[in-house]
């Protein structure tokens, strides 16, 4: 296996026109766009986020509400443009780029491999096909992307798939409606690497089948989460920064006023860090 080449250039040399390949990629991009929009409309994801943003604005506008107990003053904050840019940078740099949502380290790693592998692989494929030329750098990105996608998607299936890990189902019991996204990624990475190593029409057809299944099932799969998850992460950062935070409590023991309250007397001599309770053990009994 030479990671400085891809089988795409060989395909062009063997009689398949660049224009045909460009047509296929364009159709796949079109499918993703149309189906993602249909998915957003069907699930009302965009509406949900606009409503959530409006609700946070309403809470903010209501200001410091009448409070029976607790120090509310100075807690809510109108965000400046700079604050919003900060939230956006945090969303892109942490929540998106490093899958910051996951508190489970290994699962986060698997997601990073899958996501960045997919991005590298798809971007390199598109650049090679639309540029009608392959460079060693692009080919390396294509191969590394495919390998990362293989590690991430197959690692997820065999280490984190809840049906198998926790509910005792066989790894080979497949529910196409639920597993199509995982299977599409697994199939795409495996067949792409098989095509790279062994060449030949069979592997090429398998690549076409896998990628068509992946991009043609966006409406029914969880593919579009890559568009609405960043919106959710940004929204979370904004409401945390402006203090509305979906009405979550904000009282803590750090507040001296709280420390002197009657019901907090039991904690007067206790350390400020009590260690971990139920979070000492990983959730693995489900």
């Amino acid at each position: 296996m030479d990671i400085t080449t891809t089988p795409i250039a060989a395909l062009a040399e063997n009689g398949i026109a660049w224009a045909d390949m460009q047509m296929y990629v364009s159709v796949m991009i079109g499918l993703v766009i149309v189906m993602t929009i249909a998915d957003l409309l069907h699930k009302k994801s965009a509406t949900y986020f606009f409503q959530a943003a409006d609700k946070a604005d309403e809470l903010l506008a209501a200001g410091e509400a009448e409070s029976s107990i607790g120090n509310e003053s100075g807690r809510l904050k109108q965000l400046s443009a700079g604050d919003k840019v900060n939230a956006l940078v945090g969303t892109v740099a942490i929540d998106v780029a490093t899958a910051g949502e996951f508190s489970n380290g290994p699962r986060r790693l698997v997601h990073i491999f899958t996501m960045w592998g997919f991005v590298l692989f798809v971007a390199a494929t598109a650049i090679i096909i639309y540029g009608e030329a392959e460079t060693a750098t692009l080919a390396t990105a294509w191969n590394i992307g495919a390998i990362m996608l293989l590690v991430g998607s197959w690692g997820y299936w065999f280490a984190f798939k809840v049906d198998c890990q926790s509910e005792g189902q066989s790894y080979f019991q497949i529910d196409l409606k639920k597993d199509i996204f995982s299977l599409g990624l697994m199939g795409t990475s495996l067949t792409a690497l098989g095509w790279e190593i062994y060449g030949g029409n069979t592997w090429f057809v398998l690549v076409l089948v896998s990628t068509t299944a992946l991009f043609g099932s966006v409406y029914w799969s969880k593919f579009s989460h890559m568009f609405f998850k960043p919106m959710a992460a940004y929204n979370k950062r904004i409401i945390e920064a402006n203090g509305t935070n979906e009405n979550l409590p904000h009282e803590t023991r750090d507040d001296e006023w709280q420390q002197n309250r009657h019901s907090m007397e039991l904690l007067k001599d206790a350390p400020m860090d009590m260690g971990l309770g139920i979070k000492r053990s990983k959730p693995e009994n489900y």
């Binding site: 209501a62 509400a65 009448e66 409070s67 029976s68 107990i69 607790g70 509310e72 009405n247 979550l248 409590p249 904000h250 009282e251 803590t252 023991r253 750090d254 709280q258 309250r261 019901s263 907090m264 904690l267 206790a270 400020m272 860090d273 009590m274 260690g275 971990l276 309770g277 139920i278 979070k279």
Partner: peptide
């Protein structure tokens, strides 16, 4: 759990808020 506390925030529909720690 690190601080050893639980906080509740009840917001009634007339806008009144009750916080507990």
């Amino acid at each position: 759990e690190r601080k050893g506390t639980i906080a509740w925030r009840v917001k009634f529909r007339d806008g009144r808020v009750k916080n507990f720690l």
